[in-house]
Design a protein around this nucleic acid. Sequence first.
DNA 1: GCCCGGAGTGTTAGCGATAACATATATGTC
DNA 2: GACATATATGTTATCGCTAACACTCCGGGC
Lengths: 341, 341
Amino acid sequence: MTEQARGHRHRPPAMTDVARLAGVSHQTVSRVLNDHPSVRPDTRARVRSAIDRLGYRPNSAARILVTGRSQILGVISFDTTLYGPASTIYGIEQAAREAGYFVSIASLPALDVESVRDAVDRLIAQSVAGIMVVAPLVSAAEAVTVLPAHLPVVLVQGGPDAGAPEVIVDHESGARQAVEHLLKLGHRTVWHVSGPEGWIESMARLAGWQAALDEASARVPGVLPGDWSARSGYLAGRRLAKLRSVSAVFVANDQMSLGVLRALHEAGRRVPEEVSLVGFDDIPEAAYLTPPLTTIRQDFAEVGRRSLNLMLAQLASGNRMDSKVIVPAQIVVRQSTAPAG
Amino acid sequence: MTEQARGHRHRPPAMTDVARLAGVSHQTVSRVLNDHPSVRPDTRARVRSAIDRLGYRPNSAARILVTGRSQILGVISFDTTLYGPASTIYGIEQAAREAGYFVSIASLPALDVESVRDAVDRLIAQSVAGIMVVAPLVSAAEAVTVLPAHLPVVLVQGGPDAGAPEVIVDHESGARQAVEHLLKLGHRTVWHVSGPEGWIESMARLAGWQAALDEASARVPGVLPGDWSARSGYLAGRRLAKLRSVSAVFVANDQMSLGVLRALHEAGRRVPEEVSLVGFDDIPEAAYLTPPLTTIRQDFAEVGRRSLNLMLAQLASGNRMDSKVIVPAQIVVRQSTAPAG
DNA sequence: GCCCGGAGTGTTAGCGATAACATATATGTC
DNA sequence: GACATATATGTTATCGCTAACACTCCGGGC
């Protein structure tokens, strides 16, 4: 049991306490902690043992004050209850822990520039070492313009030409795969239930869908707008069910697909016999829907890890680079798609 | 545009810079920032305007160093990709922002005491003002034993008699409601697909299920263990489908219910005509499953808000209280349950 | 007129770490 | 053996803030 745990002292042990016990100066303790080479092995051992005995933990506030840099990474996010952002942030957090960084979350109460500016300010006041923006919104790209130039940033699912390092999933390619898969099955065209306006993913998936239809010279039907929720998918599904010509639908995420499935089922339109359906994300539930959902898989955790690596690279190099990492999306064919009847 | 934004100086403005511009001492600036009463209104105004003009932001590291307390709350969590924890943390974060606190996340890489201890240590090194444990695991209750006695804690979904303030959902009552609903529909007994071992929610829901059956003198069938995932629900569902006597099932969460639904459908057992199903959580998708799922609603965001309030109360009072907030759970009847045929 | 107390402000001393410089003590070169 | 050169350690200043105390006014009670 450590001294601290015994509770003999009110003040937690500081570096000087360790130094006194080890019979060295506090600076030597500092050197041991920071792996400075010029410390004799036996001195190092003595300091280490004093640290253990006292249960000493460096005071990060003091370190931040003098160095000006913390081991904290700020994460700006919008809605962390959504599966995608939640998984990505989880990936970031895990990779950050391994790299010795903390993650401080700042979620946006609204989607305006003011909120972004406020979140950035709050994080800067915490002396974060860098900021990661996990708000896949067009407006979030503005965060970059609000940031001090020297502060490392990574845009996770950032927009096109955001002017900052970013990690993006190839939504457009994913959407194309969905459409091409459906066209190959003989469907004349593919309808689309989109994500909400302002989201980068919505736009990229929409663009991919449209491009794929154009290339195949297929008719481009009107878009049914959704908001990522199962409920909005259900509403879109009800409209689709009434249109007898609909034989294939590409839905911008799996939750909405679930709602579409429900609506089609209610209307007596069988999937995949009458209507084929492709979702996006491959959430863990997708394989267990009725019928199991053909969808576009993206690896959210990988996005998180890569984003963190990009951040670490910037922190190490000291300057903001302009790289762009693209994470692939891959179709997973299940039973919600079938040849056109 | 502020001085800082113009980038004239390398060092961001400090309190002394503000003081110089306002023609006062840095201490007066400090008084203004901390709303100390004895500052003349005109002095206060002068300081405020200097702060604005310089774009001054107090350095939190310096403040933490001298006060020993930060405006950071540590949140220990296990798997933040699960809907429940993600929503709860979101609720915490939003309430924390409104109260002027930051949230720093420390997720556990594993479920052992070592990980908990490490997470706690990491948060303490950050000088967090308090720790909230959003890891509804029996082992997480041990976090309390690892904590310094003076540090405020809130256990979110903590175990029974954890010896710390906690906010819990009344899982047991929720489970009883599920079982009673099914028994009232004429089912002779109710099967149960449980959550993973070690989770407090699993145990409480299991206990409620068993108690309700006991009270009704109904036979208590063997438990089918799951792990919260749709996949595990599917596997349990396959086993249930083979047992012709099964007419009612209470599943410990909605994701697993989805898997059970899939398995029953595959086996040709109709829900709710042949088998009634009740889930738990009321995730946003529950109402759009086929059939819409009868489930037990709990308000995760409310749990987060209440937890934060409990934390704030402790921070204000200065000592660890021993309150226990219970958030109700309420059955939502949809179409996955029907009278026993 | 004197003393007291409070309002308003300034001065000084830390908080606990790192950085920069200073000081020993070994190591090698000629 | 003298001197430059590493290696290993100590000393001092500093980061930006708050706490504690000191000081100056000013009005009221005697």
